[in-house]
Nucleic acid binder design. Structure first.
Lengths: 134, 134
DNA sequence: AAATATTTGTCCGTATGTATC
DNA sequence: CGATACATACGGACAAATATT
């Protein structure tokens, strides 16, 4: 459960427990997590604390929440492999809000930017692509 | 300022304004942002809303906050260029908390993981390295 | 050196809105 | 329409780290 006096923030403790349950398959892909109110009661923490914990899992891409529907464990996605030419420069960073909107990138997912000779070659969301050198 | 009835969440409005001020150089690298209480008063929103806005900027790697000290605009750093061999696979992701601690990675900074033939070759914090194909 | 003030971090309770069932 | 569930937002309280006097 949650140790209220361990010094470790409760939302981190809760996030860790939910995370390990997801990885262990207790909550399997496409499963709904218990509602925020349920978690709040079961773990004896406020709902705000639950939301903070869940928001971490969302940022890690583990779950996906929607109003009215619940919070669902995300299906693992197959990564597409994209080949980059020799001499390319590959830089990772967090996407701008505009990139997130236009590319449909979820929270907490970085992008890899490929440039060749100073010219932009592509922006690859890390939840969809891995890069390989030609 | 903040439009309380535009339908756009206030923390997003505030984040957008702070973000554009940072990019415009109104808040320059190493500058402190106004304190959360100041921002809360100036923009007429609650402190929780301010914290949500700032936390977005932290996740984007734009600013860095510390207890007692304040929230500082991050310095852009010179990137070291690291060469990866042909056939390597480069995957970007957010670091685990353990990696952040051991590698000293600030918030909002992704890492690039290089594997060759399934064997791990290196983990490169994106605020220090850019990769190039050999 | 010590006390005080400032600033961020955590947590709670409550209220209201919006989407879904 | 009502019940459920997530989203936004406020206020208050206290702790922890840092800065200031």
């Amino acid at each position: 459960m949650i140790d209220l006096h361990s010094g470790v923030p409760r939302h981190l403790q809760l996030a860790a427990q939910l995370r390990s349950r997801i990885i262990a398959g207790v909550y399997a892909p496409s499963d709904l997590l218990p509602s925020e109110t349920r978690l709040s009661q079961e773990y004896g923490v406020g709902r705000g604390t639950v939301r903070r914990a869940v928001s971490l899992l969302r940022a890690e891409g583990l779950v996906d929440a929607a109003s009215g529907r619940g919070t669902r464990v995300r299906e693992p996605v197959e990564l597409r492999r994209e080949s980059v030419p020799r001499g390319a420069i590959i830089q990772a960073r967090m996407p701008t809000p505009e990139e997130r909107a236009s590319l449909g990138i979820p929270e907490g997912v970085p992008v890899q930017v490929v440039t060749v000779g100073g010219r932009l070659r592509g922006v690859y969301p890390a939840n969809q692509f891995e890069l390989t050198t030609a």
